[in-house]
Computed example of a mutant assay.
Amino acid sequence: MLSPHSFSPDKAAAATGLKAAVTILDKWGASGEQGEAILRVSHSTYARAKKKDALVEINLDRDQLTRISFILNIHAALRIVFDNPENLYGFMKMANHNPFFEGRTPLEIMGSGDFVAVYETFRRIDAMRGSQW
């Protein structure tokens, strides 16, 4: 049991964000390996984040927190663009023929784990909010 003095709001917020991102990735149909690469976390950390109430606090670096932010913001953009769950959760696994994607799925590109790939995917999907595609 945690004492009130050992509780860290930053570590708790990081755990909450990680759990939310893992839930979203799961709904998008990401494999565990893709999710681990996208968020740059270990297999054990990813598995703990998937379990309800298993992760209360965690230390994450700025890169990992930024990656979580990208996932949450992509999800927010997709919620604005799409009304139906099939597109909201299926879009990330759909082949995209726009520039940059060139027939690949957003999840496939981000699954490389490369920070630039995750950022560029976020940037292009975020632009959909303003119908810039």
Rank of each mutant, 00 (worst) to 15 (best):
E102C: 09
S3Q: 06
L18T: 00
I74D: 06
T45M: 03
L72C: 02
L39A: 00
G111C: 03
Y119H: 14
V116H: 15
D83R: 08
R62Y: 07
K51L: 04
L107K: 06
A76P: 10
R67L: 06
V118N: 14
Y119T: 13
F122R: 12
M110P: 13
R67D: 04
M94Q: 12
I80V: 06
Q64R: 00
E102D: 15
N98A: 05
L18E: 04
V41D: 02
Y46L: 13
G130Q: 14
L78A: 05
G32E: 14
P4R: 06
F7T: 11
R129C: 14
A30S: 08
A14H: 14
M94G: 05
G35P: 08
N96P: 15
W133A: 15
F115Q: 03
V41S: 03
L25P: 05
L39Q: 05
A20H: 13
G103N: 11
A15Q: 06
L25F: 02
S42H: 01
F82V: 00
E86Q: 05
Y119S: 06
R79D: 15
A12I: 07
F115M: 10
L55F: 09
L78M: 09
R62N: 07
H43F: 01
S44G: 12
T121S: 14
R40K: 12
Y119L: 14
H75L: 09
H43K: 08
S42E: 01
A76V: 06
L107W: 02
M110A: 15
V56S: 13
D83G: 09
D63V: 00
G29K: 13
I24V: 10
G113E: 05
L65T: 00
R48W: 00
L78T: 04
F91I: 00
E102Q: 07
K51V: 13
V118H: 08
A77V: 06
R79V: 10
L39M: 03
G130L: 10
T23N: 07
G17K: 06
R40H: 00
T16N: 09
G113K: 15
Y46R: 14
F101L: 15
N96E: 08
P85D: 01
S44V: 04
G90S: 02
G90R: 02
L78W: 11
K93V: 07
K93C: 01
V116T: 06
A30F: 01
A49M: 01
A77D: 02
A54D: 11
R129L: 05
K19T: 08
G29I: 09
Y89H: 05
A20R: 15
E33T: 11
G35A: 05
F115N: 12
P106E: 09
K52M: 03
R79C: 11
R67A: 08
S8Y: 03
I109P: 07
G130F: 12
H97V: 01
N59H: 08
G113T: 11
G130S: 06
N96Q: 07
H97P: 03
L78E: 01
K51I: 12
T23I: 06
G103H: 05
D63G: 12
S44H: 08
